[in-house]
């Protein structure tokens, strides 16, 4: 159970890292400034979790 939890947690953090990369990729690609703001706002909780802050 303990090992299973650790594996699932690790996958979860990899997933967060992957989504963060996708958001940053979209942020670079987009030409609409409103979308840029939205991508940055969406990215914040992902970064906070990725760096183990909240």
């Amino acid at each position: 159970m303990d090992i299973l939890n650790t594996i699932i947690s690790a996958i979860y953090y990899l997933f967060i890292a992957f989504i963060s990369v996708l958001i940053i990729y979209n942020l670079i690609k987009t030409k609409d400034w409103k979308k840029e703001v939205i991508y940055i706002v969406i990215l914040m909780p992902f970064l906070l979790r990725l760096f183990f802050l909240k």
Binding site: I40, V41, L43, M44, L47, L48, L53, K54
Partner: peptide, 10 residues
């Protein structure tokens, strides 16, 4: 600007 917010909140 986004990074500043993340750093302060962090």
């Amino acid at each position: 600007a986004g990074l500043v917010i993340v750093v302060f909140a962090g």
